[in-house]
Amino acid sequence: MLLINCPHCGPRAQAEFGFERPVETILPVDASTATMVERLYTRTNARGVSAELWRHSHGCRAWLRIDRHVVTHEILCVALWVALWQAPQ
């Protein structure tokens, strides 16, 4: 199980968190159809670092950005997601 260091709550067990989606799949509401299809239905899915949106669902409920290595499970950073309304570049 991952140990996730929530900026609000400190280190907590993964069981308290929910994975939401890779950051690259976040959709701007006014995106073109082509962009929507690309964002919703394709993934880089690399054997490496994955930038993801998680939620501390059973804790402070904050939305978090977690950068994680999906082969080693190393967590590189956990940050509050403050720019939800902004599409990732």
Partner: peptide
């Protein structure tokens, strides 16, 4: 397990 991973290793939960 509901989150992306290539580890072939699961959580006890």
């Amino acid at each position: 397990d509901f989150y992306p991973s290539y580890t072939q290793r699961g959580q006890p939960m």
